[in-house]
């Protein structure tokens, strides 16, 4: 009887141990699954964040391209001024003599420091040129050029502008092209 009781107790302890082990495994399995799910969630979130960051990058690049085009359109070095007051500038109009002057300056090695320091700060990697459309002339003026060898993005913005010839007091139809590299 005593032996029987002892065997029964041993069997009971063994059973309880097994049950506890199963419970522990169950808990570990639940935790594992939980962390796997969290991991999946994180991977999904990271992927989404990366796309979102890339989108933001592209949006920033577009914004930069617009700002550069706007900046060039209102550059005092190029704009026509009113004959009555030099502080009144004429919108969408470039003085051809100023355009030619800036194009010459940007070509000259003596002004490289200005191009590198000053204009690069504003325009970065870009090419800015002006073409004469009507009356047609093959002449076009590159006022700034700094190319990027390994460019990921490129954006080209074209803005129609009046080109004012002070000598003949006439206006021609021109196009300002701003190519921004990123």
């Amino acid at each position: 009887m005593k032996i029987c009781k002892k065997l029964h107790a041993q069997h009971y302890i063994k059973m309880k141990n097994k049950k506890a082990q199963i419970k522990m495994f169950e808990t570990i399995a639940v935790l594992l699954i939980f962390f796997v799910l969290v991991g999946f969630g994180l991977i999904f979130y990271m992927k989404f964040m990366r796309t979102s960051i890339e989108d933001t990058g592209e949006h920033q690049f577009d914004l930069k391209a617009i700002q550069t085009a706007q900046l060039v359109s209102f550059l005092p070095e190029l704009q026509c001024t009113s004959p009555t007051s030099a502080n009144i500038v004429i919108d969408d109009c470039f003085d051809v003599l100023k355009v030619k002057a800036l194009a010459n300056i940007s070509k000259e090695p003596a002004y490289e420091r200005i191009n590198n320091e000053y204009y690069f700060d504003s325009f970065g990697y870009s090419k800015i040129y002006i073409e004469n459309i009507y009356p047609y002339s093959p002449e076009n003026w590159i006022v700034y050029e700094r190319t990027l060898p390994n460019k990921k993005f490129q954006s080209s913005t074209k803005v129609p502008v009046s080109l004012y010839y002070p000598v003949t007091n006439s206006y021609s139809f021109g196009v300002l092209t701003v190519e921004v590299y990123g």
Binding site: E77, D95, L97, L102, I105, I114
Partner: peptide
């Protein structure tokens, strides 16, 4: 810089 452009323009 702006004066430089005006000087070049005046030369023309």
């Amino acid at each position: 810089i702006v004066s430089m452009v005006y000087a070049e323009r005046t030369e023309e």
